[in-house]
Design a protein around this nucleic acid. Sequence first.
RNA 1: CGGGGCGUGGCGCAGUCUGGCUAGCGCACCUGCCUUGGGAGCAGGGGGUCGGAGGUUCAAAUCCUCUCGCCCCGACCA
Length: 578
Amino acid sequence: MRLSKAFIHTLYEAPKDAEVISHILLLRGGYIYPVAAGIYALLPLGHRVVQNISRVVREEMNRIDGVEFTMPVLNPAELWKETGRYFDIGEELIRLKDRKQREFVLAMTHEEVVTDIARKFIRSYRDLPFMLYQIQTKIRDEARPRAGVIRLREFLMKDAYSFHRDFDDLDEYYPKVYDAYRKIFERCGLRTAAIEADSGIMGGSGSHEFMLESPNGEDQFVLCSHCGYQANTEKAVGVKPRIQELKDPENAPPLEKVHTPNIKTISDLMEFFGINRDQFVKSVAYLADGKLVLAAIRGDFEISETKLRNHLKAIKMEMAPEEVLLDKGYHPGFLSPIGINDPDISVVIDSSLGDGGLMVAGANEEDYHYKNVVPGRDFDNSTTVDIAEVRKGDVCAQCGQGKLEIRRGIELGHTFKLGTKYTDENSMNVTYLDDHGKERRVVMGCYGIGIERLMAAVVEKWHDENGIIWPVSIAPYDIYLIVIGKGEEEKNLGQKMYDTLSNDFQILWDDRSESPGVKFKDADLIGVPFRVVISTKLFKENAVEVKVRETGEVFKCAPEEVSGKLIELKDKMRTSLR
RNA sequence: CGGGGCGUGGCGCAGUCUGGCUAGCGCACCUGCCUUGGGAGCAGGGGGUCGGAGGUUCAAAUCCUCUCGCCCCGACCA
């Protein structure tokens, strides 16, 4: 391809609203064009990279018996009402009506449609298992798109759905997807951490996130450098150090009510009582699916709303509005699990309150706190759960030795064992007849990869001060061809070189009448793996020059040898990605 | 949704506080000459309702009100 015809427009300066490196380089290189917040056009170069990534994804999906197909983005609302997601998901799901006022949604994933299709065709155990996948546009009205193409409102996702006779079969298939994902990311030049994840509203029994560690990541995960334990912060468990042993619980002093006018926050209380953060019982009220919940945790921990929500199996959860509490006779700032005897309120105690004593807690009365609180004596802590956010430096609960670190990462893929969430009788009700003629429920898994995000992640990892360094597997072109000198000989040799190399490579021939410097800069910025230069000087010694973008290595060779050398080099680079 | 920042030719910016003459600079673009190993040079040229609406004023890019858009931090995140 001649550059003059390729619609490639690089930018000398990046638009000022680009801050993260992948955003800057993709913009400058002419890969993407912003159309609206979180919505981008893929310019020809970006399009080619996405096609190449898609090819890698397809190869690996096909290898584990995936079958590609396509589902519509515009979905009838009924399907989404059937699974309940129409009601469970907030404004992120775009809802609209057609001219006849029929309700539709723009699909953010495709469980509804694929499950609908599956139930139309699955009759017998002989129809199972199978896996369908597509690479299709997803629409999510994110509250805050960010980091260029890392978090978009419209994006391409490879989404795959597997259907099984039972959980055993899903359990057997799931690791194959896991391996395929590993391979996909490796072939794109990325080493990902597969971490235990929260399955959130998707439900199901198991879930992994494939994270690329990156300072520009929008996600956090927890890592134990000692045992290698890795988990999403929403799932990670740390050891909670015991702070206070009560020496003589039998003779502990009784509860004592203390007047604490308008002193509500832990910081204010610390000052007032002159004691440490970990000697308080922190209580927070939530409204979980409309039901009041009081969560209590030791003052030096934060409540993980995700853990709490999962524990409660709640779909929607928010901090209880003040009016609701006051209406019930409770006072925010003075809450505690002590003396709560209300069937309308469930109490959840974090395991940090499993022991210790002589703490301070709210008195459930305006402007009063209790001191000398002993968990277990003054409130029931016979059942505790973990609802604490893991902290940096907490001891790893897995090995009991390492300290947990919190890292940022980009979530490239996510796999879920969905189980029967979508096939249940109160969802889409998908069954088949087993070999005894007995009706049984289909079990599902689903697996996603964000395509543009993967492209951005590769740039985050593979760049230098001059531009992008594409892995050979997904580069938009293999070779950037530059002819220096306007003589006929050079031009002819350029054409000949182009023709020869075209058999084995995708070539971008910079045929502009720009100065060499401009071409070199653009070659580096665009970041194709090899640069081939022909010049008057080289012409005289019957040589061409090759530069390897990744290593910066430059060598000369005879024109007739270039092809062979590059085939060899590219092959080597490709295998190093596996 | 809360907090912060920014909207001036395609891109990057100055001018705004303290209203005033033809709205300026670099890059890019067009024409000509020249030039081909790391974002060349010279000469000439085109392109901007200053995000939008309303208001104040003799006069608004500049002051006031409203509004839209974009970016960043946080909350949220199948």
